[in-house]
């Protein structure tokens, strides 16, 4: 498997000026290591302030680690190869309004292409393809304030896809959306992954998104608390709850049921799994 990105013992602190102008630095990331392979979907979870966004910023080279190394596409990320690396990845942030640069949908999608000096004919083609991938072709000439939050995020994804990136990072890209918008965006990312084998890093509080991932990285106070498949991670129910994370609804229900003496078999991540076990419960006796 081809390595897409990795971090090796990365530590990072923001320098914050406290009263009395003594520089205190708190570690936003503390000895973080992980490797991401081609085609994987990595979900990063953790409560507020656990360092998830900091991790994303280091990956895309907005800041450099205080110590440790960030590797992208098997090369160490540095000032020299920064722009080249950025042209191979896309990132979508939380606020749909604050990342819409162009005055219309197609201008916004073209923005990264313009910056990278892509010739005009190629640009027109790529913009159209990218909009097709996120199902926004009907809105090419729309202005941002005439779009819903979900649509704006889809445009942001198209803007990232236009460069044909190898890695897509979503930093809570769905957290400001209503359930429908969230669904739309997740559907698109799911589709992209099966169709073009895109590697995805999604930072999220949404459990449905976590369940879609191949691997989960749980962050706590700047450290990687644990990593594993969603199933493995959610086995550690009490530990997750102790750092302030929610468990999926189905998992909580099945745990409560077990506590009250209903002898359920497996661990249920999704409501569907739980319902399936429940309605066949008496047959299997």
């Amino acid at each position: 498997m081809k390595e897409i990105a990795s971090m090796h013992h990365v530590t990072f602190s923001y320098d914050t000026e406290e009263e009395g102008s003594s520089l205190i630095s708190n570690k936003a990331l503390d000895d973080v290591s992980f490797t991401l392979y081609e085609g994987q979907w990595l979900a990063i979870v953790g409560h507020n302030g656990s360092g998830k966004s900091t991790l994303a910023k280091l990956l895309i080279g907005l800041m450099f680690p205080s110590s440790g190394e960030v590797n992208l596409f098997l090369e160490s990320l540095s000032e020299e190869n920064l722009w080249e690396m950025r042209s191979k990845m896309g990132i979508v942030f939380q606020n749909p309004d604050n990342q819409f640069v162009g005055s219309t949908v197609q201008d916004d999608v073209a923005f990264a292409l313009e910056n990278n000096g892509v010739p005009h004919e190629m640009m027109v083609k790529r913009v159209h393809e990218a909009l097709e991938q996120v199902k926004m072709t009907d809105y090419v000439n729309h202005e941002p304030h005439h779009l819903s939050g979900g649509q704006k995020q889809r445009v942001a994804i198209a803007g990232a896809l236009a460069l044909q990136p190898e890695l897509l990072i979503l930093d809570e890209a769905t957290s400001m959306l209503d359930p429908q918008g969230r669904e739309e965006v997740i559907e698109i990312v799911k589709k992209l992954r099966t169709e073009i084998g895109l590697t995805v890093v999604s930072i999220t509080h949404d459990l449905e998104e976590v369940l879609l991932a191949d691997r989960v990285l749980v962050m706590n106070e700047g450290k990687v608390l644990m990593t594993g498949t969603p199933h493995e991670i959610f086995q550690q129910g009490t530990e997750l709850e102790s750092i302030g994370l929610d468990l999926p609804f189905a998992l909580r229900v099945s745990e409560l049921l077990r506590d009250t003496g209903v002898e359920l078999q497996g661990n249920h991540m999704t409501e569907e799994e739980l319902v399936n076990e429940l309605w066949t419960f008496h047959f299997s006796k």
Partner: peptide, 15 residues
């Protein structure tokens, strides 16, 4: 803008 590769007008094409 920065993460989408914007670094001034140099070498930019126009949509």
């Amino acid at each position: 803008m920065e993460v989408r590769g914007y670094r001034g007008g140099e070498g930019r094409t126009r949509f």
